[in-house]
């Protein structure tokens, strides 16, 4: 893959301690790919290089160490171990050969946090007006939404465990906001 525009930098945030039973922790490096393809280009395929593309809107489908977050009708965020990125991108390009698609490496654009513990949903809801009841946002749900003044991608990993992904320039703000909100649940 073209190396020119790849920014390799240190993590944007340092861990912060909060007196709370809701843990807010930065997650280390991860391979992230923004993948877009129309239904016609996918031609009924259920997976692309190990990433499921037949999942419902706003859901996360996991296969091994790869996950596909369906953020829009024709938009996915693929995540994989950082070390596999090169190989994964090659495989996607090979699979989608001669069909219209877009693949962008956004690994270094984003920073992810784990928000975990009882009341983790309340902590997210401190800045996100989305319904996080299990009925409307079950385990495996994943969507782009808003946290306070920042755009985020929110994933529910378990009933009391969420992954929050934001752009790196918003990372210190989002981190601080979550840690501050978590203090209500000491």
């Amino acid at each position: 893959m073209l190396e020119v525009n790849v920014a390799r930098r240190t993590p944007a945030v340092a861990p912060m301690k909060a007196a709370s039973h809701v843990r807010v922790e930065p997650i280390g490096p991860e391979g992230r790919l923004s993948f877009r393809a129309k239904e016609s280009a996918l031609a009924g395929q259920s997976e692309v290089a190990g990433f499921r593309v037949d999942g419902a809107m706003n859901s996360r489908t996991v296969s091994g160490d790869r996950a596909a977050l369906r953020l829009g009708p024709d938009e996915w965020l693929f995540t994989c171990p950082a070390a596999d990125l090169e190989e994964v991108a090659e495989a996607i390009s090979t699979t989608m050969d001669n069909r219209a698609f877009s693949l962008v490496d956004v690994s270094h654009r984003d920073v992810s946090f784990l928000v975990e513990g009882e009341h983790a949903d309340f902590v997210i809801n401190a800045g996100a007006p989305i319904d996080l009841s299990l009925r409307s946002f079950p385990v495996g749900a994943a969507t782009r939404t808003i946290l306070a003044k920042s755009d985020i991608v929110l994933t529910r990993l378990a009933e009391d465990s969420f992954k929050v992904t934001c752009w790196r320039s918003f990372a210190t703000y989002v981190h601080g906001f979550l840690v501050e909100a978590a203090k209500d649940f000491a």
Binding site: M57, G72, P73, P129, I130, T143, T145, I146
Partner: peptide, 17 residues
Amino acid sequence: MLLIRCPYCGERPEVEF
């Protein structure tokens, strides 16, 4: 909070639109 039904996502808060 005003909810708007996105044809793709269902009912979501107004601030997302």
